[in-house]
Design a protein around this nucleic acid. Sequence first.
DNA 1: GTAATTGCTCAAGTTAACTTGAGGTCAAGA
DNA 2: TCTTGACCTCAAGTTAACTTGAGCAATTAC
Lengths: 159, 159
Amino acid sequence: MLRELTIGALARRTGLSVSAIRFYEERGLIHPGRNAGGQRRFARSDIRRLSFVLIAQRLGYTINEIAARLAGLPDGRVPDADDWQVMAEGFRTELDARIALMQEFRDKLDGCIGCGCLSLKNCALYNPEDRAATKGVGPRYLLGDRPAPIQDTPAPRAL
Amino acid sequence: MLRELTIGALARRTGLSVSAIRFYEERGLIHPGRNAGGQRRFARSDIRRLSFVLIAQRLGYTINEIAARLAGLPDGRVPDADDWQVMAEGFRTELDARIALMQEFRDKLDGCIGCGCLSLKNCALYNPEDRAATKGVGPRYLLGDRPAPIQDTPAPRAL
DNA sequence: GTAATTGCTCAAGTTAACTTGAGGTCAAGA
DNA sequence: TCTTGACCTCAAGTTAACTTGAGCAATTAC
């Protein structure tokens, strides 16, 4: 039984594409070694690592966020159960918060359906102030959590 | 009190940028009229419409998905409470499913933390087969729900 | 009536997360 | 040994969701 995996083998084991794995390396999610011929050689623990990446992505985390979480794992040695546990706990906390927020939104939506208020100033879902108050939560392409908008009005032209 | 809103006014009311509103029109989320001079004029109900868009986005829906949902609203007339209610109900169902899935994931993660198994073949989170089974749920850049990967190996070169 | 503000169009740029392609190298087996 | 199939690098393309910029028109304020 081989101790190391080629990129193709890792792709088959994780369901990822070869190019995605190379990309993940570039973004710092995995750090494969190289053989004499310059080809990547992956540790078996990288399967786990990539599985974690996939799960986290499904939950809405960006690659950068995932990289930050993975940074908690030892890089020199193969991560053991304790390493994973520590990391997964922080992850779980965030997940709980995220679920709570979705439920909150759902309940608000329920309220709005019940009273048919989706148009009222005091509707929690509708209210822009409210949105500002709950920022930093949703899915990911809310990148940087939408900075102050209302632009348009090009810079004063010189001359 | 003015019956119609300029794009700037709508931007202030929704917190969106002017360019984003124009973009949303292009993508079919709103259908403003035009005044004699060719400037956009929005109905007050468009504030609600855009609020809905913002909420849905936070929950991970893509613009296309939101457009599809909004298509359920009457376009000729201003949507009333009933219109919104019908639409919101379908939305709520999806939301429930999404929340349930996140909880399921969290519970699985819990199990993995508890047993320290994140490496085991039978771990629900870790298992690729399992991933395939739960597809179509997570956040959005899982666009098209990742088609069969493992490419790389350029087409056979002719000659 | 004229200057400042707001709006318009259209093209191009941006970020995330990858994929595709070109051109060339390694490795495994008959 | 030589032929494939698996790899490698690097540049460019792709999609979503917008933003930015240029150049110009309509409104509004004084």
